[in-house]
Structures are given as structure tokens and as C-alpha cells.
Amino acid sequence: MNFLAHLYLSQNNTNILIGNFIADHIRGNNFLMFSKEIQQGIFLHREIDTFTDAHEIVRKSKRRLHKRYRHYNGVIIDILYDHFLAKNWTNYSAIPLDIYTQGIYNLFTKKTTELPVKSQQFITYMIEYDILYNYQFEDGIERVLKGMNNRTKGKSQMDLAIEDLKELSPELENDFTLFFEDLQEFTNQKLKKLLYNP
């Protein structure tokens, strides 16, 4: 899953949310300088990624994509699933998406100096382009995909995946809806273990 889903699945626990957000920028056991709850957020992120990668519905979504993306298809599905979460946000949260995302931006602005440098750099980009809020729009997703393609120096062809989104949106959205039910149940169980069985 991508950033919006990881944040949402943290269930408004600030330290879990921070750990969940920075986890991609933490390698190996380089988390030991963080508080216990932030470490738990990092562990939760890794558990979510493992569960997602192994899930049959996610694998089906990857197979729907054009073959040109090769091993980048997982990254694309992560981004497209965030699109469907943002697009259908009212089904998952009583807090409007614009208010929720501004709360996230405010939190990370206050905490930025405590976070890894790569996380700080992404926060600046995320806020400047209002990435989390704009995930709901096709042009917002297109901007993210173009940015990811630039990062791979054009090798991934991820900028072309906006075509897959337009062509396969109903099928991929259905995949997301079914998968996200399973993921929420899995995450709820993991959070209980992390928070109440330290």
C-alpha cells in the first residue's frame, strides 16, 4: 500500500502513524533510536507490505496491468489503490479528506526535524503538491506516476499507467474494495498485538 493507506491504517495513533510513514526510509534495524511506539509503527508498515504482496487479489490487480511495467507493477498498484481509497474516502472516514490531510501535513511539519532526511524531503514535496488530497483525482495520480517514472529515469514507464487506470478503473476499484476489507481486519489484529501485548 502507498502513503495514504498506511497513514489511515495507523488509526490516528500519532507515534504509530509516524513510524508507519517513515518505514520506507528505514533500513534494517536502523529504527533503534526511535521511541517504542514509532518502532511499532515501522513494524506495522512492514507487516502491511508483506500481507499486501502475498494477497491473491493484489496479485490479480498486478496481472491486469500492461506487461511493460515488469517488476514495477506492485508500485503502480500501491499508488492506484491509494487513488481508490481517496476517491471513496467517505466510505472509510467521517473526517473529510481535506481536513484529514491538512492534519497530517501539520503533524509532519511539527515533527519534521525528528524524522529521517528522506522523509523530510518527501514531506516537503507532499505538502507542496498536496499529494494525499490529490490522490483522488486522475490528474493527481498522473503527476505521481510521472514523478515515479522520472525517478527511474524512464525505465519503469510508470507514466503510462494512467492509461491502465482509465481503461481498468472499475475492475481495479473492485479489487481494492475487496482487498481493503481484508487488510483492515489484518491491521486491526496486528495493532492490538502491538499495543496491548508489548
Rank of each mutant, 00 (worst) to 15 (best):
K146H: 11
N73F: 11
N30F: 15
D130E: 07
D182F: 07
N197D: 14
T101D: 04
A94M: 14
N106D: 14
D82S: 03
Q39N: 07
F179E: 00
L97V: 08
I141M: 03
A54F: 14
N29P: 08
Q11Y: 13
Y8V: 01
Y100T: 04
Q184I: 09
I22A: 00
R46W: 12
Y135V: 09
L183T: 01
I79E: 02
L160F: 00
H45P: 00
S35M: 12
I162R: 01
E128W: 10
K62T: 03
L4Y: 03
M1L: 13
P96N: 05
E138V: 03
I104V: 15
I79M: 07
L183Q: 02
Y72T: 07
Y133D: 06
E185Y: 13
I95D: 15
F34G: 06
I26D: 02
H6E: 06
R143Q: 05
Q121A: 10
I141G: 05
M158I: 02
A5T: 03
R68P: 07
L80F: 06
P170W: 14
I162G: 01
W89L: 01
Y69Q: 07
L168T: 00
M148N: 09
Q39A: 01
K192V: 06
N88H: 08
Q39G: 03
S10K: 01
G28Q: 15
A161H: 00
T177W: 01
H25V: 04
G41T: 15
K153P: 11
F84M: 04
S61R: 05
I131A: 02
L85F: 06
K166H: 09
N88I: 09
F3T: 00
A54L: 15
P170N: 09
Q136Y: 14
R70M: 15
S61A: 08
L4Q: 01
F137Q: 10
E163H: 09
E181L: 15
L7K: 01
G154E: 14
F186P: 10
F31R: 10
I99A: 13
H25G: 02
D82H: 05
T14E: 13
N15G: 05
E37T: 09
I26G: 03
D139C: 15
Q102G: 11
G28M: 13
Q39L: 07
L17W: 00
T187C: 08
G154M: 13
S35G: 12
N29R: 15
T177N: 08
S10Q: 04
I123N: 02
W89E: 06
I48F: 07
V144D: 06
L191W: 07
I104S: 04
E167P: 00
Y125S: 14
Q120R: 02
Y125D: 12
Y196Q: 15
K190Y: 14
G140K: 02
I127D: 04
M1I: 08
H83N: 10
F84E: 01
L65Y: 02
Y72H: 12
L97G: 00
I99N: 13
Y69I: 06
W89P: 04
I38Q: 00
N91E: 12
E181I: 11
I22P: 00
F34N: 03
L195K: 10
K193E: 13
K110V: 09
